[in-house]
């Protein structure tokens, strides 16, 4: 039987007990407020525990001030909550400490993460801070995909990695900054070497 031919039954909506959905209010460090459903919050272990510990009722949620998340800005938090709302009710992968299995980025997540790398960096931080396992996996996968097909030289440019020489120079500079006497000794040693002295001491 097709859907169009199915008999229409009038349902008295008032007779069905509807469980009222609770929306928590969160505030980013730049004072932007977000309303997030209870089910979506379950994706974040940190927020879920926080909310459970606070024991808010639906009235408290409206009357009390929004829960402040100090470490995350509004732009990043918006992305995080968008992701949580889309994936609410989904099973959370269990982290058993083994090597991560193959992670595939769903279409929605790919669109959501079509952002600049600065924001992606913040998103990874936020996912880690709020302990959202699946968001952390997909965002890390996105960064891992950046490396695909790139040579070490290209990787050095993309990931802003210093070369061995630069690294050593930086180390030396840091050491010198720590101990100015070492630099003096080194200069003295170089000078003596130039003069042809065999022994330093």
């Amino acid at each position: 039987m097709s859907v169009e031919n199915a008999p229409v039954v009038d349902v008295d909506e008032a007779a069905i007990p509807v469980e009222k959905k609770m929306y928590y209010r969160f505030e980013s460090n730049d004072k932007k407020e977000f309303r997030v459903s209870e089910l979506a919050i379950q994706q974040s272990e940190t927020l879920n525990r926080l909310v459970e510990a606070m024991g808010y009722t639906s009235e408290d949620v409206e009357n009390k001030p929004a829960i402040a998340i100090e470490n995350i800005d509004g732009k990043t938090l918006k992305l995080v909550f968008q992701w949580c709302e889309h994936h609410k009710g989904e099973a959370i992968p269990v982290d058993d400490g083994s090597v991560p299995k193959i992670v595939e980025i769903p279409e929605f997540d790919a669109k959501l993460m079509d952002i600049d790398n600065g924001l992606l960096f913040k998103l990874i931080w936020a996912a880690d801070y709020l302990n959202i396992v699946q968001l952390l996996n997909v965002s890390c996968k996105k960064v891992a995909n950046m490396a695909q097909g790139k040579t070490p030289a290209q990787l050095r440019r993309v990931y802003l990695l210093p070369s061995d020489e630069e690294d050593e120079a930086a180390k030396r500079a840091a050491q010198e900054a720590q101990d100015p006497r070492a630099r003096e000794v080194e200069e003295e040693f170089e000078e003596r070497k130039r003069q042809g002295g065999n022994s330093f001491f």
Partner: peptide, 8 residues
């Protein structure tokens, strides 16, 4: 190329 702050 877009840069990513890997070391951070």
């Amino acid at each position: 190329e877009e840069k990513f702050q890997w070391l951070e």
